[in-house]
Design a protein around this nucleic acid. Structure first.
Lengths: 171, 171
DNA sequence: AAAGATTGAAATCTCAATCTTG
DNA sequence: CAAGATTGAGATTTCAATCTTT
């Protein structure tokens, strides 16, 4: 969670665009809007989850497990779903297992692999958090009409399409 | 930078909404779109800045300094602009000063306070990075028309307005 | 005592190396 | 030797405590 707190003013961007022809003020403004908004949301979420003794990352593991068949997954699968390394998952599962929210079990078919399963206690914690979580989330989005919510998701989809060809691209 | 890699399918959300009435599928989908998109952008930016020997956070300090009068600011001001603690700024400035990209100077008017100033070397590095940076940023947003870019910024503004009343609110 | 900056300890995430199993 | 998981070292950020100046 690291981003600027305030967006630069449009005039500032337009002034800089006169020197740097590669700068498109509307693009920069929209781009930074995504980062600033997400950072602010994440700050709030971190505070919210802390009330339940969870970090955002630990919550993520629980909710991902909840959606898996038998509420079970391997660390490798979790790492893939959450876009973190396996080493990170190992640490997160360590903490969650210590609190009894998940269980580890060695798989019989391939004993290199491990099963991570959501426990009853873990599920109960999720059931306690989720209604509140979704209600808050809904409140955040409440200034947008149903149509605007769909527009927003569509526009962000186009941004992700653009990611394929830039920032990390050749050069 | 921690978020899921893939958005849940709309059907999954709709199925869960039948059990949890507080869940609005369109709201959740748009909300997660913001987080997923931002996380993916940040991953790319981290890679991009690493080519110049910078982290995203260090780049942020440099660009914030560049926009200040005399390209100078106190750690407290930088912390406020970047939404991090002063302790974090101290660490970032330590690193940047070691590489000669910024300079520290004790202020004469209030000797508790410190001036952090962008050096010629720091400015030169920025001038080298920025054209490339804005070009990549423009490419990311290239799938959106000018109108869509403005729409996106407007919609995200409404999301931030909604943040005032939720997630971190009483409860 | 209050404000600005810094330091040290703890949490979190990644990379590289290691251990176990196939 | 491949693949899955874990461990240890390094980077980054925050909180609480400390130091200096007002």
């Amino acid at each position: 969670v690291l981003s600027i707190r305030e967006l630069p003013r449009v005039e500032t961007l337009e002034a800089e665009a006169k020197r740097l022809t590669s700068l498109d003020p509307a693009a920069v403004y929209a781009f930074l809007s995504v980062l600033v908004t997400s950072a602010e949301i994440e700050r709030r979420m971190e505070t919210h989850f802390a009330r339940y003794g969870l970090s955002q990352a630990r919550f993520m593991v629980l909710i991902l497990l909840k959606r898996q068949p038998e509420q079970t997954a391997t660390p490798a699968h979790l790492a893939d779903l959450a876009a973190v390394t396996r080493a990170t998952v190992t640490g997160l599962v360590d903490g969650l297992a210590q609190e009894g929210l998940v269980e580890r079990a060695h798989r019989t078919d391939d004993r290199r692999s491990v099963s991570v399963r959501l426990t009853k206690k873990g599920l109960a914690l999720l059931e306690r958090i989720l209604p509140d979580h979704y209600a808050r989330l809904g409140a955040v989005m409440s200034r947008l009409t149903r149509t605007e919510k769909k527009q927003l998701a569509t526009l962000l989809g186009k941004v992700r399409e653009g990611l394929g060809e830039a920032i990390d691209g050749a050069g």
